[in-house]
Design a protein around this nucleic acid. Structure first.
Lengths: 139, 139
DNA sequence: AAATAAAAATGTAACAATTACAAAAAAAGT
DNA sequence: ACTTTTTTTGTAATTGTTACATTTTTATTT
């Protein structure tokens, strides 16, 4: 447990972010539960452990993480942003029925090799699929 | 001009949508200016010609179009939805600098052939790239 | 260790996109 | 022409997010 906190602190420090308690907990949550949570989900999950936690802090922290590039925002649904720690490249499948967001591997090379994008500097890529997931199909 | 309206009326009728003036104008705007406009952009553009036009009508109409599948919503930025008439499949490149959204062709077959998505019903696909566009690069 | 300065966290209010809802206007049916 | 249904409209409510001032915590200096 303590080792985990040290590991996460190191990630923050490496990105020039002071490892405060809240920041550690928020990043830990993102890394442990790879659920692409919304701000509200983070808040509800961490609030029991950190009763003074404010949503503004979560917003501030996530924006800080975004600037440093340790997380990225997923705008799958227009009504809410979800947050994803940046690891390997992958696409996202959102189930219209249960609302879950699943990761799946994507070969971005096929997309990049495109004449139409010559001269364009691509910084961020995402593949978003929507539909009904396997689990919902089966029920 | 009149032919255009007839053409657009027919699209609506084919999708079981009564071709009211507002609906025709909104769909016409989407089809003519392929700019992936926001609701506000549609409103500002059509308001001079239709002074009584209400944003609620635009929202209602777009939701109607979404249900019928003649347009789809692009959630590139979390703060706003953009709307795109459905034609051929293509990806979207959004320039972080000038804000423009460019279309580019995408071969979705490369993405679909994926073991991880077996059993999943994919209804909607999008590839979203962000970065700096050619025009902004040159300046 | 106490005092001071700087950074981070917090709560409230403001904001903007969207939706809910009821009333007004227009269109369709009788 | 009258009634019913559909469409449009304006206002108010809702929700995710940001702005901002205050409080708390952390770091620095004496």
């Amino acid at each position: 447990m303590n080792q985990n906190i040290e590991r996460i602190s190191r990630i923050l420090i490496n990105n020039n972010i002071k490892p405060s308690f809240q920041r550690i907990k928020i990043l830990e949550y993102l890394l442990e539960n790879k659920k692409h949570p919304t701000v509200d989900e983070i808040y509800v999950s961490l609030h029991p452990e950190i009763p003074t936690l404010s949503k503004t802090t979560i917003y501030n922290t996530l924006n800080l993480f975004l600037e440093s590039g340790i997380v990225r925002a997923l705008n799958i649904e227009s009504s809410e942003s979800r947050y994803d720690p940046i690891t390997d490249q992958h696409g996202h499948f959102k189930c219209d029925h249960c609302g879950s967001v699943y990761d799946f591997p994507v070969n971005f090379e096929n997309i990049k090799s495109n004449k139409f994008l010559e001269g364009y500097e691509v910084k961020e890529k995402d593949v978003i699929l929507k539909g009904i997931c396997k689990h919902c199909k089966e029920n």
